[in-house]
């Protein structure tokens, strides 16, 4: 059973995964698409995230993604992940600024 998500004030959940073809990190957007940029991710409340996650996991193969899970973000514009790990996933390796996700279309 999935552990209950505890969000701090000002936090929401986003869904993330790796793209099957190239392993790149993607974020789930409104309308069911996946995007490289966390800025386009759909922000979910804890009480709705579980159902959305279950639906998205079930469609992962069709959508060409693998390893779908949810993670907490500060609900700013753009949203910013709470943990170092997810910040690195969102923005790229800190040791190669030229690989920053923000520079990609």
């Amino acid at each position: 059973m999935k552990r209950p998500v505890r969000l701090e004030p000002g936090q929401k959940l986003v869904l993330t995964a790796n793209r099957l073809l190239d392993g790149r990190i993607v974020w789930w957007c409104e309308g069911g698409t996946w995007d490289l940029h966390i800025g386009r991710a759909a922000l979910l409340d804890a009480d709705e995230a579980e159902a959305v996650l279950a639906r998205v996991v079930a469609e992962a193969q069709r959508d060409g993604v693998v390893g779908v899970y949810d993670t907490a973000v500060q609900a700013a514009v753009p949203p910013e992940p709470v943990t170092v790990r997810e910040k690195i996933r969102a923005h790229g390796p800190t040791v190669h600024p030229e690989f920053a996700v923000e520079t990609e279309q």
Binding site: N18, L20, G23, Q61, R62, V66, G67
Partner: peptide, 26 residues
């Protein structure tokens, strides 16, 4: 890629060929 193999089924096969799925890519 066509879904015949699930990720759980594929993972040990790709690992035997040196292919990991890491943080940003394979």
């Amino acid at each position: 890629l066509d879904g015949t193999l699930s990720e759980d089924e594929f993972k040990p096969l790709r690992l035997m060929n040196g292919l990991y799925l890491q943080l940003h890519a394979y």
